[in-house]
Amino acid sequence: MLDKKGIAKRIAQELRHNWYVNLGIGIPTLIANYIPEGIDVEFQSENGILGMGPFPFEGEEDADMINAGKQTITPMPGASIFDSATSFAMIRGQHIQLTVLGAMEVADNGDIANWKIPGRMVKGMGGAMDLVASADNIIVAMMHTNKRGESKLLRQCTLPLTGVKCVKKIVTNLAVLDITPQGFKLIERAPGVSVEEIKNATEGRLIVEGDIPEMKID
């Protein structure tokens, strides 16, 4: 099975040349470390920067240059800065080719819940609702099961929704799955993981057709 870096590496394979990409906080931010050779992408951060680059060297941190996770970053050559309304115009106006975010639950119709556990964790949705409502291409990066071993790929979400019928693809520590009208479709297995393991960890409808290949990751 994969760790967080492995999930990020696998999703990085989905990047295409000249794409604009928004990476959510958590596992998705790691994707920036694994951009495939020979392609250029520009990362957009919802707080108002396009062309987000790596963390600064020690001693060069700039309090006025942060990403959506409030981490210090640096701008790439060709970067631009803008206000929050312009930022969400890019997002809502479908100018971004790929959105990657984490989730607590994904339903087999593409519903996603990733912002609230009533009575326990109410941090807020931030830009997530705008992102999932507007993006054509949404990949969820998450663990297949939660800390109690329960499946996070469900028939129906139990937690408050972030968006409806919006997720296209999921990459977990166990598998790559597409969302289809018939439910989750298994596309790839993580290295060393069996189809049986994936079936046992998936509560929602799961379609398994033919031989399921293993992910190819360095």
Partner: peptide, 28 residues
């Protein structure tokens, strides 16, 4: 939603009393 917050503030200063957005549809 953050994008709605941004747009609602901008609208407030722009004489646009209300607008439609896809963000949040189907949620609380």
């Amino acid at each position: 939603p953050q994008g709605s917050l941004a747009a609602r503030c901008q609208a407030g200063g722009s004489g646009i009393p209300a607008f439609f957005t896809p963000a949040g549809y189907g949620t609380e």
